[in-house]
């Protein structure tokens, strides 16, 4: 096996690896390097040390605002999405009528792309706000809650499906035995269902957290950062820094490196934290 297959590296691995180098690895390494330079076309880079990193925080408050907005958004949407997804999953595993239909409906928004989702909710929220004579971009709080509602609509069904799969793996005897012992529904959820679906909780927290932090399309379509960049999240702020202002590519790249480190750290810490709960549970 080893011998006859080993020499076929060029055939089996090279095509994927070359594409991976072109579109990911080389740009990644270049990105780290470019964040310490001033450049407009990647070939004219001039070393400037940590200037770009300093500028990212000090030149204006856009990046700090975006960071704060993103953190608030991530906390609110991770909690609300997982709460509603878990509750609906518990309800839809009790064998009530129409379970399949409900599951189909709740999951559907997840397949629609972010740009389309953004415009769907723009019209609905603006239509609702019309009677107060304001629009979505009048105040940053509308954009914030608009995004939260949009993400809930998009991701509740997705997370619900993962929770359902977890709950269905719990042996029925376990729940029946608890019922015989006189456990109420809340006790069953707390002492049997939640500990048993810890792996699903890990996955769902990971997916909602990384999705919330990396959100771009929905943000672009719903408010595009308006009013006055107050609703721009990190990804959109980085995009605007790159393409909205001349000679700021280096600062954009420095922001992107910070963004990457942030997302990677959060994902790592979250996986470590909830995985340790899985072992205990």
């Amino acid at each position: 096996m080893q011998k006859s297959l080993a020499k076929h590296f060029p055939l089996f691995v090279a095509p994927t690896l070359i594409a991976f180098l072109i579109s990911f690895l080389i740009p990644f390494v270049m990105g780290v390097y470019l964040s310490f330079t001033e450049f407009t076309t990647v070939v004219d880079a001039k070393w400037v040390g940590i200037d770009n990193y300093v500028k990212a925080f000090t030149a204006n408050t856009d990046f700090i605002n975006a960071l704060w907005f993103t953190v608030k958004f991530a906390v609110v949407s991770v909690v609300s999405i997982n709460f509603f997804a878990f509750i609906t999953a518990v309800i839809l595993t009790r064998g009530i009528r129409g379970t399949n239909f409900f599951r189909t409906v709740f999951f559907m928004p997840n397949l629609i792309g972010g740009i389309v989702l953004g415009y769907i909710w723009q019209i609905i929220i603006n239509g609702y706000l019309y009677k107060y004579q304001v629009t979505l971009t009048y105040d940053a709080k509308y954009g914030f809650w608009g995004l939260v509602i949009l993400m809930n609509w998009q991701l509740i069904g997705y997370m619900m499906v993962i929770y359902i799969a977890g709950i269905q793996n719990i042996p029925n005897d376990l729940i029946d035995a608890a019922k015989v012992d006189g456990a109420g529904p809340l006790q069953i959820i707390r002492h049997i269902i939640i500990p048993s679906v810890m792996p699903a909780i890990t996955i769902c927290l990971f997916l909602t957290l990384t999705n919330s932090f990396r959100l771009f399309d929905q943000n672009l379509a719903l408010t595009n950062g308006a009013p006055a960049r107050k609703t721009a999240m990190l990804a959109l702020d980085i995009y605007n820094t790159f393409y909205g202002r001349n000679n700021w590519e280096g600062v954009g790249q420095a922001k992107a490196v910070i963004f990457f480190v942030l997302v990677a750290t959060i994902a790592y810490l979250q996986l470590k934290l909830t995985r340790s709960k899985e072992v205990e549970g």
């Binding site: 990911f24 990644f28 990647v42 990396r214 771009f216 790159f242 992107a256 997302v263």
Partner: peptide
């Protein structure tokens, strides 16, 4: 785990 913005410009 790498966000797209990290590589989008060089890519």
């Amino acid at each position: 785990i790498v966000p797209f913005q990290m590589v989008m410009f060089p890519m």
